Simulated assay, not measured.
Amino acid sequence: MVSEFRSFIAKGNVVDLAVGIIIGGAFTGIVNSLVNDLVMPVVGAITGGGFDFSNYFLPLSNAVNAPALEEARKQGAVFAYGSFITVMINFLLLAWIIFLMVKAVNRMRLADEKKPADEKPAPPPADIQLLTEIRDLLKSK
């Protein structure tokens, strides 16, 4: 059973998956910073209030009376639609970046596949050349 587990772990797909998960976790931090530090302030400035979507919420009880989401959550139930908007923007940016990366990789693969096709075909073996010459001589007579 241990040898089967070793062969399973040693397969390239498992290692590739592990690397992908680790890089994906690091990439999530980059996308979160991109959205929170670069995109959201621009969106806030364009809409005129310099606001942050993450603090948009609707109180679900009369006891909630706070300007910030974290304070409102401590006071009672809230419908935090601003956080959802921020997460959706994160997702869309992440999906767009991954799309661009896959597109670039596909272009590189296509370019690599075209290179061997440009090579000249290898000459036929000597016996095939000799038979071709004999055939051509017989045709000419």
Rank of each mutant, 00 (worst) to 15 (best):
A10T: 08
A10M: 12
A10F: 11
K11Y: 14
G12N: 10
D16N: 15
D16Q: 12
L17N: 11
L17R: 07
L17T: 14
A18W: 13
V19N: 01
V19R: 05
I21W: 10
G24H: 05
G25V: 12
A26C: 11
F27I: 08
G29W: 11
S33V: 13
L34P: 00
L34K: 01
L34R: 01
V35L: 08
N36M: 09
D37W: 03
D37E: 10
D37L: 06
V39Y: 01
M40G: 06
M40T: 15
M40A: 10
V42L: 08
V42I: 14
V42Q: 02
G44D: 01
G44Q: 00
T47F: 14
T47I: 12
G48S: 05
F51E: 04
F51T: 04
D52F: 08
F53R: 00
N55P: 09
N55Y: 12
Y56E: 06
F57T: 01
L58S: 09
P59H: 09
S61P: 06
A63H: 07
A66F: 10
P67L: 06
P67M: 03
P67H: 02
A68H: 05
L69Q: 07
L69M: 14
E70H: 07
E70Q: 11
E71H: 11
A72R: 01
A72H: 04
R73G: 05
R73L: 15
Q75M: 15
Q75S: 06
Q75P: 02
Q75A: 11
G76P: 04
G76T: 08
V78Y: 02
V78M: 03
A80K: 03
A80R: 03
Y81K: 01
G82V: 07
G82Q: 03
I85P: 00
F91N: 05
L92Y: 12
L93K: 01
L93W: 07
L93Q: 01
L94Q: 01
L94F: 04
A95I: 06
W96R: 06
I97Y: 04
I98M: 11
I98C: 09
F99C: 07
M101S: 13
M101N: 10
V102A: 05
V102P: 00
K103W: 13
V105C: 02
N106Y: 06
N106S: 09
M108T: 04
R109S: 10
L110C: 07
A111F: 14
A111E: 13
D112P: 00
D112W: 13
E113L: 13
K115A: 11
P116N: 07
A117V: 15
D118S: 15
D118M: 15
D118T: 15
E119M: 13
K120P: 15
A122I: 09
A122T: 07
P123C: 10
P123W: 12
P124G: 12
P125H: 07
A126C: 01
